[in-house]
Design a protein around this nucleic acid. Structure first.
Length: 502
RNA sequence: CGCGGGGUAGAGCAGUUGGCAGCUCGGCGGGCCCAUAACCCGCAGGUCGCGGGUUCGAGUCCCGCCCCCGCAACCA
């Protein structure tokens, strides 16, 4: 029997900026899903990386007296470090300046030419001499380049164009029929709207851009953004090379995850490119929303950007992961109040998971010297129901709902304690006490397992306290069974999981 | 009439196929004492943007209006 596979990607992040809360959010979400699918026993490949070409990058490098490669090395490593700190479990990290990527992009572009999907044409655009690049309408301020306060010139250059129009009807059909699933529904509508408005062929090469991958059949040209960047999803798997084992195993992607601003390129351009060379298309493309901070759009100039590394410093990596994901439903935009982080940390983590763990383990030690009592299954049924909510949520990418399920289990346990008053039972009903404590310990184990994708460290700590530290090799279907915690096992209280913050 | 999303309790948000308006935080009042001054229960608070319509019944469907926000043809 073949193991299910799950290939999940984040976009590759543009190195013109350092990791910010948006990229952290996407990456954490992808990590949660990757971990969940691994826990289910599927074979998972989780890819992220950095996009490092383009004039902007070359320019910034120059300003800092660095070669473009030196500059991108620095920024790229900052991303890798940030993901490390956030416990991101990516299986690979692709850089567009890596030799393996460049080689395979050349192969792909050559193939596009062979199948007749690209043609030579002229691109006309607004060019800023100061920036040495074409600007988009959106970048202009009062018709001027915001950096150089000059009106860009309308100039032409030779480009190779991708024949997008040819593939549009087929793509549109595949999207409306959900053969390519675009989520959430409103984003799908938006994408379908783009077809109605009409789309044009786009350049896959540029003449004036120098920092990029040289086009193999025309040295005056460099491969341009999307043809370079989107291909990471397959070059990382060795597409087109002798060693394409990973590609054959994991492609097509089960899930491309991203923020909504780049949906068009992923939902339309990318499938079209794949169609052109006869490869399979990604199954699901999910675009999540944006953060606003205290009602305002995040931006560097406003100085209200939230640095994920600062959050980690204050709350730790697990808590940061948890808090970012539980701010608002996954897929929607949401407002974040900076002050709410502390409140939420205290209420959900310190008072919730942390406190519950502490009270349950303390009672186990106090009343049973930390020895797990005889089995009982009073909580088996409700826990099972929460599991099904949790799994359903995770499977449909509703990470926030999975978190809700966890909180529900937490609340269930707290209420169960109140209801049974173990401190009372300790005086007059030892038999009942034993059952209650077993139920609580076993429920806590389930909580620990559910926590794993979202807060891997906390999960580990809880399970270790229960003498169940090593579980990653065990299938979720086993972990979900009630009664895995064996009577006679030793449990012990560790230090507080989430100390309160004042 | 470019495309699309949104306006629900003090704050942030849920509300699948129309059927007594929910969640979290905060506020107020009880309870408990195992626990990280944590936990449990209860209460207060909403003309569901505005105006019409369909219906036995609409936050939920239809029409009009007001306000906010993304996207708008090659920007990562």
């Amino acid at each position: 029997m073949n193991k299910e596979k799950f290939y999940v990607t984040t976009p590759i992040y543009y190195v013109n900026g350092e990791p910010h809360i948006g990229s952290a959010y996407t990456t954490i979400a992808a990590d949660v899903l990757a971990r969940f699918h691994r826990m289910k026993g599927e074979e998972v490949f989780f890819l992220t990386g950095t996009d490092e070409h383009g004039t902007k990058v070359a320019q910034t490098a120059q300003e800092q007296n660095l070669t473009p490669q030196e500059f991108t090395d620095i920024i790229s490593s900052k991303y890798q470090l940030a993901w490390d700190i956030l416990d991101i479990s990516n299986d690979d990290f692709i850089r567009t300046t890596s030799q393996r990527h460049k080689d395979l992009v050349k192969i792909f572009v050559t193939k596009l030419k062979e199948v007749g999907a690209i043609y030579e044409g002229e691109y006309e655009g607004l060019y800023c001499v100061g920036c040495e690049r074409f600007l988009t309408e959106k970048e202009l301020v009062n018709g001027e380049c915001p950096d150089h306060k000059k009106k860009p010139e309308l100039i032409k250059e030779k480009n190779y164009f991708f024949n997008l129009k040819k593939y549009l009807p087929e793509i549109e059909e595949k999207i409306s029929s959900d053969e390519i699933r675009i989520l959430p529904e409103k984003i799908k509508k938006e994408v379908l709207g783009l077809f109605k408005q009409g789309l044009n062929d786009f350049s896959v090469t540029r003449e004036k851009v120098k920092w990029g991958i040289e086009v193999p059949f025309d040295s005056s040209q460099v491969v341009y953004v999307w043809a370079d960047a989107l291909l990471n999803y397959i070059t990382a798997l060795g597409y087109g090379s002798k060693d394409d084992l990973l590609f054959r195993k994991f492609w097509p992607a089960n899930l491309h995850l991203m923020a909504k601003e780049i949906i068009k390129f992923h939902a339309i351009f990318w499938p079209a490119m794949l169609l052109a060379v006869g490869e399979e298309l990604p199954q699901t493309i999910f675009a999540h929303g944006f953060f606003t901070v205290d009602g305002q759009k995040m931006s560097k100039s406003l100085g209200n950007a939230i640095d994920p590394m600062e959050l980690v410093k204050q709350f730790g990596s697990d808590a940061t992961r948890f808090m970012l994901l539980s701010q608002f439903p996954f897929g929607q935009d949401g407002d974040v109040k900076v002050g709410n982080f502390v409140i939420q940390y205290n209420s959900d983590l310190a008072n919730g998971v942390g406190n519950l763990t502490s009270r349950v383990l303390t009672m186990a030690e106090k009343y049973f010297d930390g020895i797990v009592p005889e089995k009982d299954s009073e909580l088996a049924e409700p826990v099972k129901n929460i599991w099904s909510e949790y799994e359903k949520a995770m499977t449909s990418f509703e990470v926030d709902k999975a978190i809700e399920a966890i909180k529900k289990l937490n609340g269930l346990c707290d209420a169960y304690v109140e209801e049974n008053k173990p401190w009372q039972l300790a005086k007059d009903d030892k038999e009942k006490l034993s059952k209650v404590i077993y139920n609580l310990l076993e429920a806590l184990r389930h909580l620990g397992v559910m926590l794993y994708p979202i807060m891997p460290q906390t999960s580990q700590k809880i399970l270790q306290s229960l003498g169940k530290g090593d579980f990653t090799s065990i299938q979720l279907s086993d972990l979900q069974n009630w009664g895995r915690l064996q009577p006679g096992a030793k449990v012990s209280k560790a230090e507080a999981l989430f100390p309160r913050i004042q």
